[in-house]
Simulated assay, not measured.
Amino acid sequence: MAPPFVFPQTLTSLEEDNDSDYTRLTVQNPFPISSLRPPELEEFVKGVSFDLSDKELFCVEEQEVFDRVYSLVKGFASLSPGCKLNLVESLRSNLSVLLPNVDSLSRSGSFLSRDGGHDESDECGGEQLVADRVASHRNAFKIYTFFLVHIVLIEESSSSSANNATKSEEAVCEFMELGTSEGRIMNLISNSLEINLPLLFGSSDPDENYLSFIMKNAFLMFENALLLKDSDAKDALCRIIGTCATKYHYIAQSCASILHLIHKYDFVVTHLADAVAGAEKKYADGSMAISLIREIGRTNPKDYVKDTVGLKILGGFLWSWLIGCQNCFRLTLAYWFPILVENHTR
């Protein structure tokens, strides 16, 4: 059984933080794809894609497969459009098939617990088999998520740089096609938050390492105005933020990031307001909205006298949020009034 995968700080940390004790999954033998000629690289990508489709879904935790996928993701910007799409679709397809399998694992565990026709040793063996299966699915789930998110980050970085250069009509078409893939990837990541994650992670909330990775990069993508123009990607990012903050109680960190972004980038205001309103509508839970109001209420009004631009942006955020979810206003009215009174008396 493969060691557990732990989300590193960066993509290349998997290679730099090589774990010789095998207490966690890291890259052992990165492949120098830059040394391959285009036909050889294409065959290399096809080989990786074949393994991902031909073997079990969690084959990505096998050391050889893991190292080869990592090498391709690390050099993703240098791949041809065809190789990019081949790799992306292989990873995306496997993750999309893996998600419903988690529920089947839950049913398998329930069946074993109800089946009284086996002796104690058989029962223990069956429980261990399910536990190992869950661990492999958890590893694969995190690995696919990690690589797909980094592909989006790499592609967005490359696209932003390419926008400053002259591109042929063919290159523009390829860029648009890959942009569509980015929206599909983030939509899949958003959907993955709706499966039985408590079963995978063994607790009511996913572990901090996973949530931190998802939210850090979701907010990082929010800083990219080009990505937000893709409605699929933007909607997926809004759902990711709303789900992690509300369903998985990642509220304090989310609110801090939201307030930081709306003061830094005016183009995110409406979209982040949609994320807050959408979470309240979906989960009938205004905890994120209430936490934001509390944070805003802690600011001394005199500070905004010196920062009229910040005040205007904050007002635009609150207005967009209330328009997007008028129920939020009624829900949080009890919190608005004491804050306004307190600020007035300062």
Rank of each mutant, 00 (worst) to 15 (best):
V88H: 02
H263L: 13
D266Y: 05
D17R: 08
A277T: 03
W319N: 11
T299E: 13
S106T: 13
R294D: 14
S20K: 12
L331P: 04
A135T: 00
F5G: 03
E61M: 00
A171V: 04
F175V: 14
S192T: 04
C244A: 12
G109T: 03
L340P: 05
H118W: 10
G310C: 01
E295H: 09
S110R: 07
V27W: 00
P81F: 01
L322Q: 15
E43I: 10
S20Y: 11
R184S: 12
T10N: 14
H249K: 15
K229S: 06
N164M: 09
A218V: 03
T308M: 15
L98D: 10
G125V: 00
D119C: 02
L314N: 10
I258E: 00
D67S: 01
I185N: 04
E64P: 03
F222A: 07
N164T: 06
P100Y: 01
L98I: 03
V309N: 14
L95N: 06
V269T: 14
N139S: 10
I251C: 04
S291Q: 07
G315K: 14
I258D: 06
R138E: 15
N300H: 12
P301E: 07
L318Q: 09
D232P: 10
G324N: 11
M288A: 13
M186A: 04
H260G: 05
K247R: 10
S80F: 06
L220I: 06
A279M: 08
N300R: 09
N196G: 04
S203H: 06
S168D: 12
N29R: 10
A275M: 04
D19V: 01
E170K: 09
L227Y: 04
G183C: 00
C255A: 12
Q128C: 06
N209P: 04
E123L: 12
C59Q: 04
N217Y: 04
N139R: 09
I262G: 02
T10S: 14
D274Y: 01
K302A: 12
Y265C: 07
L85V: 05
G202Y: 11
I214L: 10
L72H: 01
G297D: 03
L333E: 13
W321Q: 13
S113A: 14
T345Q: 15
C255H: 07
E61Q: 15
A275R: 03
G242S: 01
I241F: 00
S110K: 08
L148G: 08
G242W: 02
T299P: 13
A225H: 10
L41Y: 00
Q28N: 11
P3E: 05
L98V: 02
N300L: 08
S159I: 08
G297E: 08
R330Q: 11
L91K: 04
S35T: 07
E64H: 04
R138G: 00
S181P: 09
M215E: 11
R107K: 12
S106D: 09
E194V: 13
G310V: 01
